[in-house]
Design a protein around this nucleic acid. Sequence first.
DNA 1: CCTTTCAGTTGCATTTTGAAACTGATTTGA
DNA 2: TCAAATCAGTTTCAAAATGCAACTGAAAGG
Lengths: 154, 154
Amino acid sequence: MRKTIKRRSNCPIAFSLEVVGDSWTLLIIRDIVFAGKRTFGEFLASDEKIARNILASRLARLEELGLITKKPHPTDGRKDLYELTDAGLDFIPVLLELSAWGAKYEPETAEAAAWLREVRMDKDRLIQLIRDTVKNGGSVFAGPDNVMDRLKAR
Amino acid sequence: MRKTIKRRSNCPIAFSLEVVGDSWTLLIIRDIVFAGKRTFGEFLASDEKIARNILASRLARLEELGLITKKPHPTDGRKDLYELTDAGLDFIPVLLELSAWGAKYEPETAEAAAWLREVRMDKDRLIQLIRDTVKNGGSVFAGPDNVMDRLKAR
DNA sequence: CCTTTCAGTTGCATTTTGAAACTGATTTGA
DNA sequence: TCAAATCAGTTTCAAAATGCAACTGAAAGG
């Protein structure tokens, strides 16, 4: 955590919310974890239509805070790759709980989270599986190395 | 969920964030769950210094969304009591994960969450215990009926 | 009663967001 | 090889959300 956050209280929940307590930050992390997105353009293309200036400012902030790193794209010099640090990966449990709540109270979105209920695996192990997959460049849903296939292949 | 939320995508995480994806909403729920707060004045007094117009608008929104209910205070006609519905209580797991992240990455806040690490109890059972306690008017830390005492008394 | 307390509103300045046009570097393809 | 297209990011400006302080009306307290 490079840049320090103005801490309004000594509450760990309040601290976490100063890091990710806005509409967009967790959606960017979601895009990396679930959809395997890594570039500015990929984040920009997500369904929720983040404005590009806001995206740029959030990515810069996430990097300052040490939740993501930025490195040059290996083959396309115009692009950079954004990847989660360990601190960023540690938001996976929060994402899973938010997903469970959303799926429960908005049935229209439940399909997208149905796999979660069906996983017959200890929650901690599932988080570890997602973590490892994302750390190796994969994601939950997308790409050649994804959690869904890994689960099926067991 | 009375009032419907403009849903920008079919993602359950995005839906949850449209409900609680701002700086204040989860802090209000935290105040109920952890500190046993129930009235406007109690929420207003919390460390993070929410402005009273923002608090009023958030409470109204939470009620519209069906996460809290509002009922007259039994002995003081000026006050109302705000309490969590089942949908509101279902954010407890999210709060616990946010707490764990904050405690890990901001040591200054870790003390407030130390009890969590020391609980030798299945996570699901802990959530159930907190849920029941809050539902009966108690909270994690405060009041005659609190989770901390219950844990010690085991 | 008269004062205080309380929840909530109003008015207004400041900050943040959002949309669109623009910039400069890099890639693509004729 | 070079003009057009693509990409990440910035700038500009309008609109919305936030934050602060003063205010209101109802109820409690003494």
